[in-house]
Amino acid sequence: MTSRAIAARLVISIDTVGRHITNLYRKIGARGRADATAYALHMGLVPEPTGGPRP
């Protein structure tokens, strides 16, 4: 999801989303969403993609 979509869903400001994302990246050593996604897959936090269409 985009930061704007996350903010809307959680009813928080986009600045708060950005702050949380920055803190998360620092904690897991990620440089961006791709690194964070790879980390989540590696740690088993999300299922492996099946190659099917995205919802």
Score class of each variant (00 low, 15 high):
L45D: 04
G52Y: 08
M1F: 07
G44C: 07
Y25A: 07
S13G: 08
I6W: 00
L45G: 04
D35I: 03
A38H: 12
M43H: 14
R31C: 09
H42Q: 13
R4E: 07
D15S: 10
Y39S: 02
I6E: 01
A7I: 00
H20Q: 10
I28R: 08
I14L: 02
V17D: 00
A30F: 05
H20L: 15
M1E: 11
P53I: 08
A36F: 01
I12T: 10
P53Q: 04
R54V: 15
G51Q: 05
V17E: 00
L45N: 06
A8N: 14
R9C: 02
I6D: 00
A34K: 09
T2I: 00
M1H: 08
G18I: 03
R26E: 11
A7N: 01
V17G: 02
R9L: 13
I28N: 12
A38Q: 14
I14D: 03
A5M: 01
D35V: 03
I6N: 01
E48T: 11
A38G: 10
A40L: 11
N23S: 14
G29P: 05
T22I: 06
A34F: 05
K27H: 06
D35M: 01
A30C: 07
D35P: 00
D15V: 01
R26I: 05
D35L: 03
V17I: 12
G32L: 08
K27L: 09
H20N: 13
I12Q: 03
P47F: 11
G18F: 05
R4I: 01
I6A: 10
M1S: 13
L45P: 03
G44V: 04
P55H: 06
I21V: 15
K27S: 14
T16W: 02
N23I: 13
H42I: 06
R19I: 11
I28L: 15
D15M: 02
R19H: 10
G32E: 06
R33S: 12
G29N: 08
L45V: 05
T50K: 06
V17F: 02
V11G: 02
P55I: 11
H20I: 15
G44K: 01
L41G: 10
R19C: 03
G29M: 08
A40Q: 13
R54P: 12
A36H: 00
G44Q: 02
L41T: 06
A8H: 08
R54K: 09
A30Y: 04
L10Q: 11
A8K: 14
H42D: 15
G44N: 12
A34H: 07
L24H: 10
N23A: 15
Y25C: 09
T2V: 02
R4T: 10
R54D: 15
H42A: 15
I12C: 09
K27V: 06
G18E: 01
L41Y: 04
L45M: 14
G18M: 08
N23P: 02
Y39A: 02
S13A: 03
R54Y: 13
A34Q: 07
V11P: 00
I28D: 14
N23E: 15
H20M: 14
E48P: 09
R19M: 07
